[in-house]
């Protein structure tokens, strides 16, 4: 179980002579991931979803807020004592081409963390190779073929599997998959998504999926939760299928409306939402952060700050004063 409460992070961008500019990447994000669960963060680039993933993988620190891993509060620990906990959360990079060292074979890549593990647990040397083969088998690769190869001899899909196998060497509790399929060939994406789903079931690994493509979030498990993030704030949260079929926050609706419709197979949803302008981080923040771009904003939206919560009979949590279900998602052509 991994939880976060009120996580904030501000990056100070170095500007010229006149000093820097603050970019608030995260403005108090709460989340929780159960063991073996699946949580997806979606939003535009620059919304803070990647920062959140990096904080969880221990690659970035946060400014305030509390992260607990298996009930242990990270803020109460010294930085050195935190490391073993964060090691149980492994990051799967977006780019499988830079995530593997081009000068090292798959065997070398896997053996290094396994050797460390063997030393820590007092296992024999033979276990390293055994485990490397086992892990490759687990991610759907043929060890005999893959082990002696260099990364450039593998396809993008195979590399991403090797990256996942490497993450599994430390028996992680959670995998943070940051746009893990966006650089993989289309015909192979489902394979990687299916693998993540499979690992959840077989190993009880939680998957934290970070993406700008909502559709892929469905494929790591239909029991997953979706967090829609806008400018460092969660604006809608709930089960994946609920939010996709009946989103209530205009920003979620805008995101879903933007997904291309496979004309011929699908018909567009009836009430697409198009936001005005583009994501801008440096605007001052009064009221709802999305208000300036929102087609449904009222006076209240620019004055008051909406808080994430449930209202009326809407099943998911949202942060909107005027939640309304709209049919924005494409429908299968047959059913129209």
């Amino acid at each position: 179980m991994i939880t976060g409460q009120g996580i904030t992070k501000t990056f100070r961008q170095r500007g010229g002579v006149l000093g820097g500019r603050d970019v608030r990447a995260l403005r108090g994000v709460d989340f929780s991931i159960a063991r073996g669960g699946a949580v997806s963060f979606i939003g535009e680039s620059g919304c803070g979803k990647t920062t959140l993933g990096r904080i969880l993988a221990g690659l970035e620190s946060h400014d305030s807020g509390e992260i607990t891993i298996d009930g242990v509060s990270m803020t109460s620990l010294r930085p050195r004592a935190r490391r073993p906990y964060f090691r149980r959360i492994q990051l799967i990079h977006q780019d499988p081409y830079s995530a593997l060292n081009p000068t090292r074979t798959v065997h070398q890549t896997l053996a290094a963390p396994l050797a460390l593990r063997a030393r820590q647990t007092g296992r024999a040397k033979g276990w390293i190779d055994e485990r490397a083969e086992e892990l490759l088998g687990l991610v759907g690769l043929d060890p005999g073929h893959v082990l002696p190869r260099y990364p450039h001899q593998l396809s993008g899909g195979m590399r991403q599997r090797v990256v996942i196998a490497r993450a599994l060497t430390v028996d992680p509790e959670a995998l943070v998959a940051d746009e893990a399929v966006s650089m993989i060939d289309v015909s192979l994406r489902l394979g990687i998504l299916g693998l993540l789903r499979d690992l959840r079931e077989r190993l009880g690994v939680s998957v934290l999926f970070i993406t700008h493509d909502v559709a892929t979030a469905r494929y790591i498990g239909d029991d997953g939760e979706l967090y829609v993030i806008y400018r460092g704030q969660v604006v809608e949260r709930g089960p994946v299928e609920t939010i996709i079929s009946a989103p209530v926050h205009p920003y979620t609706q805008a995101l879903l409306s933007a997904i291309p419709v496979l004309h011929g197979l699908e018909v567009p949803g009836g009430q697409p939402v198009t936001p005005a302008g583009a994501l801008e981080e440096d605007e001052h923040d009064a009221g709802c952060l999305f208000a300036r771009r929102c087609p449904f904003a009222t006076g209240r939206c620019s004055a008051e700050v909406p808080v994430l919560g449930r209202t009326g009979d809407i099943p998911q949590e949202h942060a909107c004063f005027h939640p309304e279900r709209r049919s924005v998602v494409a429908m299968p052509a047959g059913r129209a």
Binding site: S187, R189, G194, E266, A330
Partner: peptide, 24 residues
């Protein structure tokens, strides 16, 4: 056919979609 079937989509049965075997 395989390519269309391999696209992660917002609608439809998750089970119907599958990746193409092999590699490009």
């Amino acid at each position: 056919r395989g390519l269309i079937q391999a696209i992660p989509r917002l609608v439809g049965d998750i089970g119907e979609a599958r990746a193409l075997p092999g590699r490009p």
